[in-house]
Amino acid sequence: MLELRLVQGSLLKKVLESIKDLVNDANFDCSSSGFSLQAMDSSHVALVALLLRSEGFEHYRCDRNMSMGMNLGNMSKMLRCAGNDDIITIKADDGSDTVTFMFESPTQDKISDFEMKLMDIDSEHLGIPEAEYQSIVTMPSAEFARICKDLSGIGDTVVISVTKEGVKFSTRGDIGTANIVCRQNTTVDKPEEATVINMSEPVSLTFALRYMNSFTKATTLSNTVTISLSSELPVVVEYKIAEMGYIRFYLAPKIEE
């Protein structure tokens, strides 16, 4: 038996909107510690890891570990039927081939339930090693989204370079080149407006902008984004989910031919 009641149902709606175009089908894993997902995009270039900790739910019952295969497009269609202020409860019985999403309006005057068919998904679960990153940049998520969108009008790839001067986003295309440098800026009124660079070694890596732009659909989940870079590793683009967990996108770099 599984029953998860999320008062801030909009978080789940936003999570789905941010991953449904990247991943078609995924297994949601439910254990006593939380509700999580790990899935690769169909070309195995990017990976998304989601964690919603059990403490973030108003009510969290998961009698035994469960893995529920869902089509994210279909799940998104159902969650779109929930109001932004609705409380969302996810329910499933042991061994059932369906999951139920229940939506309650804040005033309890409208209660809906949607039952969705589960599917068997044979997905490869990858071990993500703990890593010390050479450069970690935290910046306003809206600023990062703006940069990715702007650069994708000019080129297909972005070179992210971190030095002690700042973080530089560069692209090159048929019409010309672009460089955007964000300097460390911690003297702002609000902490979420700061750009903070923690660098142990300078790093420069190239990534496909198409994926970066897809990751920025999670911008609504957090005011800040953390970009972790190491020369030998995929980049991690992390959006914290208030008091609940995170959504992390891993993207393999492009290398010179």
Partner: peptide, 14 residues
């Protein structure tokens, strides 16, 4: 424009 690496080249099957 460079070779796109796969994520599976970095993370092993768990």
């Amino acid at each position: 424009k460079g070779v796109q690496l796969n994520i599976t080249e970095f993370f092993r099957s768990a």
